[in-house]
């Protein structure tokens, strides 16, 4: 899991004029939200209506697309479109769950480290660096190794790995805000720390965090798909898109739809999340606000 490039770049000096090359309409946000909402809408619909029951095997083994089965059936005779919709639940659930775990843990840890004394902060920085040195997927694989493959384990593992990244970002952001003159002024004026956090720190760091979490959501979806592909995520027979792709590769020449549809769904959702993140950044970054 990688960091967001644009939150990493050094903060612009005050007074830099918005540049022509960077002036973008927020079509990123619009398109991103549309893509995410398409997936979310399909998932919501899946709770009310499904073309077939999830474990209805009446479709016959590997029926080609068309007719009753929009995308055909899998080797058990289950409708692939139905599986795709159910897979959407897992993808969105992973995104929400992992962001909740990673966001809450990461922001709390980052705030604590940001406010800590230099010595403690150094220690926190080192620990975070080490945690980040375990790439998400390796960390998740390690946890899955013992706790057994399940969706819950995968979400928790991805969330924990995300927490380290979010914590590191939060820490840096807090440091930047605390270094500003108005914070010093507020301190001198006798404003309490909790009030400073609530009035100055959180509102200042929230936009960047939000952007980052939107990006992390997309990465979480990819991580879950990879885990499931490796057989370390959602166990069969539940339909995760990664798992569906694993199963489909055996019949890629004879039933290409099964190998394409879950991949396209994954890309749509992740691009949607990334574009939303870009759009949010355009909205919230004062350097680009027009």
């Amino acid at each position: 899991m990688s960091l967001d490039p644009e939150t990493l770049s050094p903060p612009a000096p005050a007074g830099t004029a918005p540049r022509k090359a960077r002036r973008r309409l927020s079509w990123h946000l619009v398109l991103g939200l549309i893509l995410v909402l398409v997936v979310a809408g399909a998932v919501l619909v899946s709770y009310v209506w499904l073309p077939f029951a999830p474990d209805d095997t009446s479709g016959g083994r590997l029926t080609p697309p068309g007719g009753d089965h929009l995308l055909g059936t899998d080797k058990l005779g289950r409708d692939l479109f139905t599986q795709l919709l159910i897979g959407g639940r897992i993808a969105l659930g992973t995104a929400l769950g992992a962001v909740a775990v990673g966001g809450v843990l990461g922001v709390s840890a980052g705030l604590l480290a940001g406010f800590a004394t230099r010595w403690l902060d150094d220690a926190a920085a080192v620990v975070l660096d080490i945690l980040i040195a375990f790439p998400t997927l390796l960390l998740a694989m390690l946890i899955v190794a013992g706790a057994g493959a399940s969706l819950g384990t995968a979400i928790l593992a991805i969330g924990l790995a995300m927490a380290a990244i979010v914590a590191r970002l939060t820490r840096v952001l807090v440091k930047q805000v605390l270094a500003r003159d108005y914070i010093t002024a507020a301190r001198v004026a006798g404003v309490s720390w909790p009030r400073i956090v609530a009035a100055h720190v959180l509102p200042n760091i929230a936009p960047v965090l939000l952007v980052n979490l939107a990006l992390q959501a997309g990465l979480a979806v990819l991580a879950e798909a990879s885990l499931s592909y490796l057989g370390l995520g959602t166990p069969p027979p539940n339909a995760s898109w990664g798992r569906m792709l694993f199963e489909a590769q055996a019949t890629v020449l004879t039933a290409p739809a099964a190998a394409l549809a879950p991949g396209i769904a994954l890309v749509v959702l992740v691009i949607g999340m990334n574009l939303t993140a870009d759009g949010l950044r355009d909205l919230t970054d004062p350097r680009r606000r027009r």
């Binding site: 474990d55 095997t57 058990l76 057994g148 493959a149 057989g231 166990p235 069969p236 027979p237």
Partner: peptide, 15 residues
Amino acid sequence: PSYDPHPTAATFIKS
């Protein structure tokens, strides 16, 4: 057992 064909067969048995 979590590896094929058991989960598939288990789903079938369940239904």
